[in-house]
Amino acid sequence: MIVTAAAFGLLVGGLLGLVGGGGAILAVPALVYGVGIPLAAAIPSSLVVVGASSAVAVLPRLRNGVNWRLALIIGAAGMATAYLGAMVNRLLDPKVLLAAFAAIMVLAGLRMLRTTQARGGACALPGGGVNWRSCLPKAVATGAVVGFLTGLLGVGGGFLIVPALSLVLGLPMALTVGSSLVIIVINSLAGFSAHLGDLHLDWAVTGTFAGAAMIASLAAGRLGTGIPDRVLKRGFGILVLVIAAYVAVQALMA
């Protein structure tokens, strides 16, 4: 179990470091189907893993790879809704949660595979400025939705934050990855604290998984700065769809 957790930790950390999200898409299924722990424990465990590895992965991007104002606005907006998501989580059947997880992953993956023109948005105008009158409502709404899903499904939200920052808010991938990692750290902290009331973790498995993910995320974070935006987006979308198909099959067979 420990060796399996370490192997999956390297995979999750590598994904986070490269594309700034998607770690929990792998972490939750890996903990449930690969390591063999129940979904109730996998959700808070994944938040520890994703939060810790995201904090390490953002280090190479601290100076020029993060839109700090936007990241903090989105992160703050999601903190309150993360608690609401955790409350709803306790009321739903695990099969329903896994089916919802797969459906959201499909939508996010398809959005990232769509060919879009490189253009600015309200939060990243072509001239480099920000139209905050238009950007702020979108940023707050994005944060609220992602925060809710963080508490509900045990995700840092990166697989939604990356498409939102890139496609909805108009940030280039160079800023999207670093900003997403900061938001994931905030969301993971909020989501984990919302689960403290009924926390039952295998800390040996969680610690091993998180440690391996942190090592891989730091290495991949340095590597990812030299990969073209188009390659990152398409690779991210394909991986999300593959994992979505697997989770959907497992949910139907459960």
Rank of each mutant, 00 (worst) to 15 (best):
V182W: 04
L201Y: 07
N131D: 15
S134R: 15
V155K: 00
T150R: 01
L196R: 14
A102L: 10
I184M: 14
M112G: 08
D202K: 12
L169K: 04
L107K: 05
P126W: 07
V140Q: 00
F101K: 03
G197D: 13
C123Q: 08
G191R: 06
G109R: 05
G147C: 04
N187A: 02
L149R: 00
L165S: 05
L110F: 14
L199P: 08
L199Y: 13
L165I: 06
G158Q: 08
A174H: 15
P137I: 08
Q117P: 04
G178E: 09
F159P: 02
L136I: 02
V145N: 01
L199M: 13
W132L: 10
L152W: 05
T142R: 03
V162F: 02
L201N: 09
G191Y: 04
A118I: 12
L152R: 03
G120D: 08
A118T: 12
V155C: 00
G191M: 07
L113H: 08
L167S: 09
L196M: 15
A118V: 14
L153N: 07
F192Y: 15
G128Q: 05
L149N: 04
G121N: 04
S179H: 10
G120F: 10
A100F: 12
S188W: 01
L175K: 13
T150W: 00
S179Y: 11
G158M: 03
F192S: 12
L110D: 03
P172E: 09
I184F: 10
G156L: 11
G157E: 00
D198M: 08
G191T: 05
G121W: 03
L175E: 05
A190D: 07
D202W: 11
G127I: 06
G151E: 07
L107S: 08
A194R: 09
G178R: 13
A124L: 00
S180G: 12
A204S: 13
L110E: 12
A124C: 14
G120E: 12
G128H: 09
V185S: 10
L113T: 11
G127Q: 09
L169A: 04
G158N: 04
L199I: 14
T142C: 13
A174C: 04
M105N: 12
A122C: 09
A194T: 07
P137W: 11
D198C: 02
T176I: 03
R111S: 11
L125D: 06
L98I: 10
G121Y: 04
A118L: 14
L152Q: 00
W132Y: 12
G178C: 14
G120R: 10
A122S: 14
A174I: 11
V168I: 14
G120T: 12
Q117Y: 11
V145D: 01
Q117C: 07
F159W: 05
T176D: 02
R119P: 05
H195E: 02
S193H: 11
A144P: 01
A100Y: 03
P163G: 08
L199K: 13
Q117I: 13
R133Y: 11
G151N: 08
R133T: 13
F159D: 07
L149Y: 01
L110Q: 12
A122E: 11
I104H: 01
L201H: 13
I104N: 00
R133N: 15
S134T: 11
L189C: 14
L175R: 14
K138I: 02
L125F: 10
L160Y: 00
P137F: 05
A174G: 11
V145F: 07
